[in-house]
């Protein structure tokens, strides 16, 4: 087939404007989060003392951490859908959750006596954290990957990993309201591990689904 003949076929295929990629990406993010929120309410729901917990700094800090993961990851995943993306400064915002957690851990270590560090780190329900966060990540990750197939990321694996991190951020935000452990020592040990699992799944899936 000559190139001019292919061009004939391409020109005959009309463009359908529809929703732009950014809108569809946001929609997928919202829909995925909604499904996970329903699932969360069905299986565990927020902890019973949430009204009291909401007044404690350690509890609230968990949401700052998880949102600091979800937002930059989602923004960057969206940005990388363009083949000519230059992530630049946006990529640096991915450091935010780590810096926040790191700082919180340092403060916690000075506030809590050394003999309690182990107890705080192990917490009461690490396995819950490692199962519920990945479980609640499934819907947002699937929705994001579905929409991202319309994109053209230069590195599909990285784009998938970021979608996974964004999904884990959403899942962790939900789970944080159930999780009885508020110490930054716990959060810094287990939440990133759960995120890593989901990001790895996202990278694996992205490498297969987002090729173009």
């Amino acid at each position: 087939m000559k190139t001019s003949q292919l061009i004939d076929a391409l020109a005959a295929d009309p463009s359908r404007p529809g929703l732009n990629l950014g809108a569809r990406f946001s929609l997928a993010l919202g829909a995925g989060a909604l499904v996970s929120a329903c699932l969360f309410a069905m299986i565990v729901g927020p902890r019973s003392d949430i009204a009291h917990a909401a007044h404690t700094l350690r509890f609230d800090l968990k949401f700052v951490d998880t949102l600091a993961l979800a937002l930059p990851s989602a923004l960057l995943a969206w940005r990388l859908l363009r083949p000519d993306a230059r992530p630049g400064a946006l990529a640096l915002t991915l450091l935010a959750p780590f810096l926040l957690l790191g700082a919180a851990v340092v403060v916690e270590l000075t506030l809590v006596p050394a003999d309690l560090w182990g107890t705080k780190l192990i917490g009461s329900n690490a396995m819950h954290c490692l199962t519920i966060i990945p479980l609640l990540s499934i819907a947002p990750l699937a929705a994001l990957l579905f929409v991202m197939r319309e994109g053209a990321p230069r590195n599909p694996g990285i784009a998938g990993a970021l979608a996974g991190a964004a999904a884990a951020g959403i899942a962790a935000t939900l789970y944080a309201s159930n999780c009885p452990d508020d110490s930054p020592l716990f959060v810094a040990s287990w939440y990133p591990l759960a995120t890593l699992i989901v990001a790895a799944v996202g990278a694996f899936a992205g490498d297969r689904l987002l090729r173009w």
Partner: peptide, 27 residues
């Protein structure tokens, strides 16, 4: 031909700005 097809199917990833060549070049 593969590039033209990708350009056609991925038009929605162009930012609609003043420049098209960097986007075409990346594809």
């Amino acid at each position: 031909q593969e590039t033209l097809l990708a350009i056609h199917l991925k038009r929605n990833t162009w930012d609609g700005g003043l420049r098209l060549a960097p986007w075409v070049g990346a594809i």
